[in-house]
Structures are given as structure tokens and as C-alpha cells.
Amino acid sequence: MERRTITPRPDWQRTVEEQGLVYPLTRHPDGSLRPYWDESAHYVFPLDEIEALEETVGELHRMCLEAAGHIVTAGRLPDLGITDPRVAAAVTEAWYRRDELPSVYGRFDLRYDGTGPAKLLEYNADTPTSLVEAASPQWFWMEDRFPGADQWNSLHERLVGAWTRQAALLPPGPLYFAHSSEDEAGEDLMTVAYLKETAEQAGLDTDWISMEEIGWDALSGRFVDNRLRFIRSVFKLYPWEWLTTDRFAGHVLDTLDNGGGTGSTLWIEPAWKMLLSNKALLAVLWELYPGHPHLLPARLDGPGDLADGPGWVAKPLLGREGAGITVHEPGSDPAPRDEPCCYQALAPLPEFDGNRVVLGAWTVEDEPAGLGIRESSGLVTDEYARFLPHVIL
């Protein structure tokens, strides 16, 4: 693994915007606009490293499914903050019926520097973003700059294949694609637009709607679109913890199609994906696989003995884009946070040319599917991170 600088393509911003990346710049706290898509450098991997990373991602995904099953069968949903009996029942039923429910994609965040085993930082298999840039613009960048080279990137064909295989699990009518209209940057919108495109290429009938436009028809007891048509299936880029706590949560649970022909609305990703997008999963994994080379020590009851090690990180169970994460050096105050957190051993992100790097490794269905790389200035990968393309040489 190596970071190399390179001259950006002329008119790179217009190029990536035309390829779906309509958020190529990020506004920073000082008001400046700086590249989010950063092709002034790129990462180079030998093939054997990529093959090893693919094996790691496949193994981690299998371990996560084992941990999810343990959480359900051992009655540990409260460890994830899932204490509402109706939500717990929905998650449990979805887990046992998961073969009947469409499930599309997820993203592992890994610590890796090319010299030792990759370490799992977290897994988001409910609402992961940075998909568009990983699947499309970085592939076209490679074709422009390194024709004949390769890239760990089978995202597009795997997504089309996933929709094709799972079409039989969908009810009649269009599959709606929804995101929140409160997304100002356009990332959620374009992620949903790209997934909608892959579904259409698989031959599915699709339609648009925002989460805020979804209506409730009290007469029929059904969710409807803005033309009062029943919504039988919807892919939502909207976290389950919001879906089950906002003002329509009762209707969601009352009408939930969880397989087996019950309910009137099928939501994708399914409710069991809450098990894979909660930081408590990291602690459960460490309990089930202590000392595993691809895991970091983690626990839920406070930092404990982690405070005696190289440092520790406190992660809110449902935080995203680094929100709420705090990094604690050795010897710092071991007092637990007030909010529920997962406490994980500190493994500082590797530094390349002064940049902190995290690998985003994608899964589609149950298979490794591609790689996206983000850089940040600090130890926490936050909303000011930059996306850099990669190539296999």
C-alpha cells in the first residue's frame, strides 16, 4: 500500500459531477470550500494485498452475522439500546425471516497500513454512504489515468446482480427509493439515485419519493405516495432508529412486511440490519472472538482495562461520520460517558504523507465488492474527510 501524488485531470470537478458526484467540495468551518473528491493523490496496492483484504472482509462479514444471531438468541437487544418491545420483536422476526427479505449492501471501515492485519473499526449495513464515489467516479478516473490497470471495484455489477436475484422477494408495484429532503449536500440523494439506477438496470419498476413526502392513509391503514398510491416496497436511506422513533413509528411497525406474507410495506434495508449498524456489535464480536487478529478489544461497560493499554476510543452506539467519538490517551480519565457507548482499544489510523487513512470495504449481499479510501487530518474520520481513488498495479 502506497500513497502517490499525481496531477489532477483538467476540469476534474465537472467530470466527477457528470458521473454523479454532485458534492465534490466540502465547506469547512472557516467557510472555505475544499475538495472532497481529491485526485491530487491516489493509493496503489499490489494484487496480493487486495486479495488478502477481500478474504478479511468475507471473514468479518461471516463473523458479524454470527454475532447478530447471538444477540437475538441470547436476548441481548437491550445492549444495543433496543428496549421497545415492538421494535425488538420486529428485529427478531426480520432476523429469522432474513432469507425472505431483500438485503443489499454494507460498508466496513478498516484500519490498515499494508504491513499487518486489517482491524475492524465499525460496520454500517443500514445506511452507508460514499457509495457513488467508490462505484463510479473512481473507476472512470482509473480508466482515464491508468488504462489497463485494475481496481478493487465490482460494486456496480454486484448491485445489479443483487437486485436481479432478489426481485422475486419484492411485492407487486414499483420499488420506491427514498431519502430525507433535509440532506443539503446531495450525498444521500445521489446515493439513492445511483441505487435506483442499478435496480432499473436489473429490470425493476422504480419510483422516487422523499421520506417527508410519504403519507399515511388512515382509511386504508396504508402508506401512500404523493399521488395516493399504496407504497408496497421502499428502499430508504433513513436509519431504522429514526424510522422506529419518529411520529409515524407506530404505523411502520403496524404495517411492516417482515416476510411470510404479513404487513403491507416492505422496507429495505430490513430491520435486522439494525444489528450490524450498532457499535455494540464490536463488543459482542470481541466476546465471541477474543484475540482475533482482525478485531480490536471492545466492551460496553466502560473502558475498564482498555484504560491500561495504548488508549481507547468511546463511540456512541448509533453515531455516524465520527459524530460523538472521543479519543483517550493512556492514563486519561476512565469515567464512562453518560450516553450508551462502545469502548474500543485505540488503534490510530495510519499516516501517509501527513494524512490519516481509513479503508471503506464494501459488501453486496454477502460478498466483498469494492474499496473506497478516505483521508482526514485527525484521528477521527469525520464529515471533512476526503475521498481518494485507488488502483491495483
Rank of each mutant, 00 (worst) to 15 (best):
R14S: 04
G20I: 04
L21C: 05
R27P: 07
R27V: 15
R34L: 09
S40W: 02
H42P: 02
P46C: 11
E54I: 13
G58I: 10
R62V: 15
R62L: 15
C64M: 03
A68R: 04
G81V: 02
G81Q: 04
I82D: 08
T83N: 10
P85V: 01
V87S: 07
A89F: 02
A90N: 02
T92L: 02
W95V: 09
Y96M: 09
G106C: 09
R107T: 04
L121I: 14
T127D: 10
P128Y: 06
L131Q: 11
E133K: 14
A134Q: 01
M142V: 12
E143F: 08
R145F: 06
P147C: 09
P147F: 05
P147A: 10
G148S: 03
G148H: 08
H156P: 00
E157D: 14
E157A: 15
A162K: 13
A162M: 05
W163I: 02
A168T: 11
A178R: 12
D183F: 05
E184V: 13
A185E: 09
V192E: 04
V192N: 03
T198L: 01
G203A: 11
S210D: 08
E212F: 06
G215S: 06
W216Y: 15
G221V: 04
R227D: 12
I231G: 13
S233V: 05
Y238M: 08
D246Q: 15
V252D: 11
D254C: 02
L256A: 15
D257C: 09
G259P: 00
G261M: 05
T262E: 09
S277C: 00
K279M: 00
L281Q: 06
Y289P: 03
P290K: 02
H294E: 09
L295N: 08
L296Y: 01
P303W: 06
P303M: 08
P303G: 08
D305Q: 13
D305M: 12
G309A: 08
V313P: 00
P316C: 01
L317H: 05
R320Y: 05
G324V: 00
A335P: 09
C341K: 02
C342E: 01
Q344F: 10
Q344H: 07
A347D: 15
T363I: 14
T381H: 13
D382P: 03
H390E: 03
I392E: 08
